[in-house]
């Protein structure tokens, strides 16, 4: 029983480390906005699929496109379940041709959600923007 102090000390360190994302964010002091302010493309009504799906699953769709195009060599265009329109499976050609300002859309939301996708380490914006 003499180890009680040590045990509680160890547990305390564990709890502090595990809850770091919460108190780390709070103590940083930056007030979080209610939502990310995104700039949507002006002349388009909808994305390749409906907004809730895109918001939740765009990364899965992109991974699916990637595997279909790169690995399976599927050259046919993606058919939208929303309206039957077709799109090339391409981050640069399809996504970024509408969302021209990557920073005002992708980056802003990713910053808000505190996620760091690695797409842009390799992919460019149309015209070779890095």
């Amino acid at each position: 029983m003499s180890d009680k102090g040590k045990i509680f000390f160890g547990l305390a360190i564990f709890v502090i480390l595990v809850t770091f994302p919460f108190w780390g964010r709070l103590s940083a002091g930056d007030a979080l906005p209610d939502r990310a302010e995104l700039e949507y493309p002006a002349d388009e009504e909808a994305c390749v699929e409906d907004t809730p799906f895109m918001r939740a699953s765009h990364m899965d769709l992109l991974n699916q496109w990637r595997d279909e195009l790169v690995r399976d060599g599927n050259l046919e265009e993606y058919v939208s379940e929303l309206d039957g329109r077709t799109y090339p499976r391409s981050l640069t050609k399809t996504c970024l041709s509408c969302h021209e300002d990557r920073d005002a859309f992708c980056t802003r939301c990713h910053d808000y959600a505190d996620v760091q996708p690695t797409c842009w380490e390799c992919h460019t914006t149309p015209g070779g923007g890095v």
């Binding site: 460019t124 015209g127 890095v130």
Partner: peptide
């Protein structure tokens, strides 16, 4: 590799082919 890739005056690389990490 990115800092060592040719870029034009606007800082763009020559093609849309993804660079590597």
């Amino acid at each position: 590799p990115r800092p060592l890739i040719d870029k034009d005056a606007q800082g763009n690389v020559a093609s849309d082919f993804p660079t590597r990490t």
